[in-house]
Computed example of a mutant assay.
Amino acid sequence: MNTAATTGLDLAGKVAVVTGATLRQLGVGIGGATARMMAGRGAKVVVADLEEDAAQALAEEIGAAGGEAIAQRLDLSDPGSIKALFERAVSAYGTVDILHNNAAAVLAKDTTLIDLEIDVWDAMFDINVRGYALASQHAVKLMLQNGGGAIVNTSSVSALGGDITRVAYGACKAAINALTIYTATQYGRQGIRCNAVCPGFTLSASAKGGITDNALEILGRHTLTPYLGTPEHLAEVVTFLASPAAAYITGQIISVDGGLLSHHPQTHDQLVAAGA
């Protein structure tokens, strides 16, 4: 069996596709922070998003900072759009070495199980599961030609713990976890690694704009770190998992949530009583 050499976090010469890289006019989230970070470590980045103008702006920003990036519009509900993304990557850079599946749909009508409309369920799965699977198909085919590559899927703590709403979103993210381990299992011997990150609440522009102060206080109370996560916290983990430094990590579902799901509900009160 071959032994893979570890060369650290350097991504020079690698081509990375990052989906869901922008958030309309609200700035970047996890995908955008990852695109910036990968470009900063030498990767050529294809910035893909439904909002083409915002993706182009991010690609230009990366270029102005000394990196290399191009933008491509992506509609994950459209198989033709996904195919065009990878054709553009190959046309511009020759191949794909890294895929960060990050784009996702969150619909307001995704509520409780008995109130959920079936068209909402179908739309969520078309984008959040089928879209990831199709993107992974295209990436794996190219990576097999290269002798390997890395896929990092953005899942969620919603796949690991229940909530009183967003049942379709949680089910989609659980399906992404399964897709992750199946991809890792089926193509690991061909040099392709696949892992998933499960973010907790992340202080992206869109998240901050859609949450109340009371909810933020509750999240902060139950997060074990003395701060909530940022897109850059997630980007560091995604970039690491995509890099040669993570050569022996595959098939893993990694929570990046500040310890949100790792303790009992009463822990906060116990920590306060202990003076922590």
Rank of each mutant, 00 (worst) to 15 (best):
N2V: 10
L9T: 05
D10M: 04
G13N: 10
L23G: 05
L23K: 01
A39F: 00
A39M: 08
A48I: 03
L50Y: 11
E51T: 02
D53S: 13
G67Q: 12
E68T: 14
A69G: 10
Q72E: 13
F86L: 10
R88N: 10
R88G: 00
V90R: 13
Y93N: 08
G94V: 11
T95S: 14
D97P: 01
L99N: 01
H100W: 03
V106A: 12
A108N: 13
T112L: 09
D115F: 02
D119T: 12
M124G: 03
N128P: 07
V140A: 07
L144T: 07
V152M: 06
V152F: 03
A159W: 06
A159Y: 07
G161D: 13
G162N: 05
I164G: 03
C172M: 02
Y182Q: 14
Y182P: 00
T183L: 14
Q186G: 04
Y187A: 01
R189G: 12
Q190T: 00
Q190E: 15
G191F: 01
G191V: 03
P199N: 07
P199A: 10
A207E: 08
T212P: 03
L219M: 15
P226Q: 12
L228I: 04
G229D: 12
P231A: 11
L234V: 05
V238N: 12
A247Q: 14
A247N: 15
I253G: 07
L261K: 02
H263Q: 15
H264S: 14
P265V: 12
D269H: 04
V272F: 10
A273P: 03
A273I: 02
A276S: 11
